[in-house]
Design a protein around this nucleic acid. Structure first.
Lengths: 235, 235
DNA sequence: CCAAAAGTGTTCGCCGTACACCCATGA
DNA sequence: TCATGGGTGTACGGCGAACACTTTTGG
């Protein structure tokens, strides 16, 4: 059975719709971004966010997940839609609307082979190069959203390994907000939420004494949330 | 000089991109939404958000402003991009991505003739009918965003007349959060921010005694913001 | 004079913030 | 034994929340 497209839809101009991913990672006490060298014209060879076009039968969320998977090999990644960028002249090659997504990945888990194939590299936030089109703006917006969300949602844990130490968690928050935090207050704060599970292991890579490993307890988070108690880190 | 469209852009499917506006207003102590009876197939005659297609040479922001103007006659309205809705089956007539915008207008200022031409009506939030496609979802998301923003940005003033009383402002916040607020705490709170200007007039329509009129002082708001002091209403 | 809405201050508890010393361990 | 990072408790101030009576004036 064929679908009859109503007249009204025909008088309007179809456009290309793309998705660009701002991919955050965290290691060595630094917040980082995964960027690729663009492999197509225009602007071939310049640094760019990983992107692609929306397929005929997929949603934007699905396109973002597909594109992220192409570069990292990861599935089930934290992805949030950011903004639809639509300046008619934003892409000199054609009229393209781009919807940006921000992704938080565990940097140790991504597929480095795939990254190499795409000429991808991790950049410290402080060393982001000039990117094509409006991609630097996308990065700024993503960072703003990350800063907003990390206060009230447990997004930070997406960037850490499953097991992490409190000094690591604190370093992550310090990297996100570019601000030193007080150890005692930070611990009191995050532990008092009752969403962290202390394990019986220590991580001894960071110091002679070693730091206790913790795990984020997502089911406690959800049950607290249902009772109206929300995640809250003060920075 | 003609522009050569690079090959890569040609292998992808162009899509229709639309904009839908969630238009909030406030009067008689109620938060309301301006909805239209859809005048095109599919779903002709059903209740819908005001929408339209993105033009070839305009940005989404421009399209949203144009569409809002068609219905209300207003320009310079508070508009915020909300979300890009992209389920492949969301519009049964064709593959259409819709970017939703939320608008805050002063209900007394819109052009009622234009509204009548579009079969538009104001609905109390509690009485929103079933809308076409995913428009009810858009409304829910807009309300969530409004609730988030009204705490920390002076968006509420977009919904009130230039001159308003503190009881009116409080009623607006009570309508937004569906929650009664304490008069004394509310006044202390909003007055202490130092962004409201007390006028020498009273509004006597609400009571025999009359309530003092105030005006929002946007330049004080901006200078405070530059100093790191932000708008903050506790609800 | 009375009904109906506007206006006004104080108290209390909690949370965010500041701050300094001991602990465990490998080299 | 010492250098390095990990771990711990208390005191203060400010802000949000609770709460009740007086004022004005049109009918």
């Amino acid at each position: 059975m064929s679908v009859v497209i109503p007249e009204i839809y025909n008088v309007h101009t179809p456009l290309l719709v793309a998705v660009d991913c701002i991919i955050f990672g965290f290691n060595e006490c630094e917040l980082k971004l995964l960027l690729v060298k663009r492999q197509m014209e225009p602007a071939r060879g310049e640094w760019s966010l990983m992107g692609g076009f929306l397929g005929e039968h997929e949603s934007l969320d699905e396109a973002a997940a597909r594109i992220l998977n192409q570069l990292t090999g990861l599935t089930d990644v934290y992805l949030d839609q950011l903004y639809a960028h639509s300046d008619p002249d934003r892409d000199p090659g054609a009229r393209v609307i781009s919807v940006s997504y921000y992704a938080l990945i565990k940097i140790s888990q991504h597929n480095q082979e795939l990254a190499k194939e795409h000429d991808a590299e991790w950049f410290k936030l402080s060393e982001i190069p000039k990117l094509i089109f409006d991609h630097n703006l996308m990065v700024d917006m993503a960072l703003q959203l990350l800063r907003k969300q990390a206060k009230t949602k447990p997004v930070g844990f997406e960037l850490l390994p499953e097991k992490f130490t409190l000094p690591q968690l604190q370093a992550l928050y310090e990297a996100i907000y570019q601000k030193e935090l007080d150890r005692r207050n930070f611990r009191k704060n995050v532990l008092s939420m009752g969403m962290l599970e202390k394990l019986d292991e220590k991580d001894k890579t960071g110091s002679r004494k070693g730091a206790w490993l913790y795990r984020f307890n997502i089911s406690k988070y959800e049950s607290f949330r249902n009772q109206g108690f929300f995640f809250n880190v003060s920075v």
